[in-house]
Amino acid sequence: MLVDFEVIKRAQTGDSAAFNEVVLAYRKRVLGTIARSIARPEDVEDVAQEVFLRLYFSLEQLRTPEVFEPWLYRLTVNAAYDYLRKQRRRMEFRMSDLSEQQVIMADAVAGGKIERDVQYHKKIRESVDSLLGAVSEADRILLMLKEVDGLSLKELEKIYKVNENALKVRLFRARQRVLKAFGAASKGKSPDNAG
């Protein structure tokens, strides 16, 4: 736990300072999970704020502060999932937005090494984003939590409230689909050579 149970209890009673403390403690983690789930840096902060907004209005429903972290993960997963679903609907518009964003990012970057690093990370993100297009939004987030965030099956069980075996099956199928897409993409162009 990044904050004491006492702080969460105070935040539940409407204490703004305690809520601020919770946000400051968890925002980096939430931003990281969202960044890896949606792979669009320009929207990460907006989705993270949505998570904390939902947290603020539903905090009083939390019965025990002990389950706060899996609960916050669930809120994060749901917000990322909602974003990805909307994203799919707005795909055509997003493509033009993205190209504009890329131009802005390219303009903003100064210096050779920084530029190379930024370009490398951008390509990694794009490769992962494109590979994860092979699975549903829900499986994409699940796969990210397991493979990239490194959550255990026990932790995922608490977040999803689904038994471990069902999660294993979902993860296996999702990974197989991604692997298949990866194999197909490798035939054209190796993602390892992307950077």
């Binding site: 946000v23 931003l31 960044a35 902060e45 990694i124 190796s190 993602p191």
Partner: peptide, 29 residues
């Protein structure tokens, strides 16, 4: 080898820097 390369890609993705919250994060929230 595909499995290993996919794991390597996921590792590289994990190492990508997490976006820092902007100064307006709390006021906007």
């Amino acid at each position: 080898s595909d499995e290993e390369r996919l794991d390597a890609l996921f590792r590289a993705f994990r190492d990508c820097p997490t976006p820092e919250p902007s100064v307006n994060f709390m006021p906007t929230l």
